[in-house]
Design a protein around this nucleic acid. Sequence first.
RNA 1: GCGCCUGUAGUGAAGGGGUUAUCACCUGAGGUUUCCAACCUCAUGUCCCGGGUUCAAAUCCCGGCGGGCGCACCA
Length: 572
Amino acid sequence: MTDEKRIERLSAMLKRRGIILPAFEIYGGVSGLIDYGPVGASIRRRVIQNWIEHWTINGDIVEIDSPTITPENVLIASGHVGEFNDLMTQCEQCSSAFRADQLVEGYHPNPDILVSKEIDEILTAEKIKCPNCNQSQWTSSKPMNLMFGTKIGAMKSSRQAYMRPETAQGMFMLYPSLYRHFRQKLPFGAIQTGKGYRNEISPRQGMIRLREFNMAELEYFIDPENPPIIDLSANKEKITLIPDPNGNEHKEIRITLQDAIDNNVIKDKTVGYFLSRTWDFLIGVGIEPSKIRFRQHEGSEMAHYAEDCWDCEILGEHGWIECVGIANRTCHDLLSHEKHSNSNSLRAWREFDEVKVENKEILAAKTSVLGPMFRDRAGSVLSALENLENIPDNLPFNLELDDGSNVEITSEMVEKKMINNSIAGEWFTPHVIEPAFGIDRIIWHILDHAYEEIEKEGEKYNLLKLKESVAPADVIVLPLFEKDGMGVTARKLNSQINQMKGVKCLIDSSKSIGRRYARADEIGVPWAITVDHQTLEDGTVTIRRRDDQKQIRMEINQLLTLIDSNMVSTLF
RNA sequence: GCGCCUGUAGUGAAGGGGUUAUCACCUGAGGUUUCCAACCUCAUGUCCCGGGUUCAAAUCCCGGCGGGCGCACCA
């Protein structure tokens, strides 16, 4: 943060040019909500498109899309309801905030179940002191759930629900379908992009902490005993890591990811792989390599579900900001959803290398005899027989049932049998590695890193050096003048280019040519085509490169071919 | 949520208990100009919202909303 005013000039430009603006501004605005304007929306769409293509390119990852409204039981299972319904209270003396249930621990057998009023009474009655300043003056406690609540349906039949705090749960809900889609073979993954919601207490720092934000998450399901084989040795780039938050090695190191895995700096290879793929994505959309680092989470700041977590932080005007979290969520989510939903389809089948053959002697029940004999107890007799550890040598014998009672089993009721079980494999709950991207934060840093203020002929000049892949438009057509048919030619060219698949072209004919170049440079359009007098004579135009203002004259048709095949940059 | 600072055209700023609120850039129309924010003429557009004090409030006071920073919080 060398220049304090730069962020203000950048923010003013983003607003002036219709990139990022405060939402609902004519009604005073709402903190933590933003609009992407006509230019910004194009950038956002392209960043997301890049992200989707980046992950789906190998075929082991598919895109899904789930509702943002989520019923409460899903979020109870995920832990979001329980973890974030804590009552908070604040010391009036020193303003420190604490979880109220932790303060009254020891004064009540189960502080978790107390409501706000009861906790306040205990705080006052027991004169509980502030751990920070030793005073005993507490504000009334308030529940702190950062989720936006809503109801599904009306009146009595309505059902409690929340706006999703993350997109991940959608992928877990679709696990059975994904498992079938991928022919029941791990590893595989699913991605989802969309809005997430958090009712932040205090949104800050422009578009860094929003209440409604664009997320992009990948859930990659693996067999923890047979993790994917990862080879990152081709990746020679040294990357900044801050590992070992609680140990002696907690400092920045520069290391290749392969070395980091080999030296156990990154313990999980799959996590290492996603660090690498995240790096590639960020570079691809124009984040500066020197402004990226990966920091390992401390135990205390880890989410309730995560086992190991690395943040990818990007340096910008707001300092180092967490933009991607890569977490090993283990089997936490799938297991919990299995329990809460009574489903048994959130598993995968692991075949053993060798089929295990088990020869076993059992007492097979003759149900036609047992049934009439024991009637309503027949069920428990059957299960006791099945669970019998040691087959008795002689019949009859006394069989103990679950309820502690005994029955006599005679030779008419059972038959000794040898069975051979062959066990080919086992069911297990897959582990999941989750890279979660904050798209708005990434877009902020793309803009931050691309924004350049230079001097041009003694004047200040701004440009956005966006990568072609995330520019709001690919090309802009500028008639030198409207007259003499230049405007007509330009409009025709604009429409021809816009008919190309995946290519977006703008046109601008107001004010002087220099001013129009400046406007296009400021929103980051990489190429400008100028229609001039010579165009009318010989069918050539000039193509201008944003980053150095170089121009090349060439035939319109030749240029159109290059634009269509995304090859304009080969000209220069 | 607390504390300090703060809010004037699209953007950046000046001013300030008084009758028509100022400037630059931007935007639009016209003119001029054969390629990098040129020039001329004209035009559009502002005191965050609500309440109070006052003959009079954009200005002072209170509250809200928004923004910045610090503390706290942050899946």
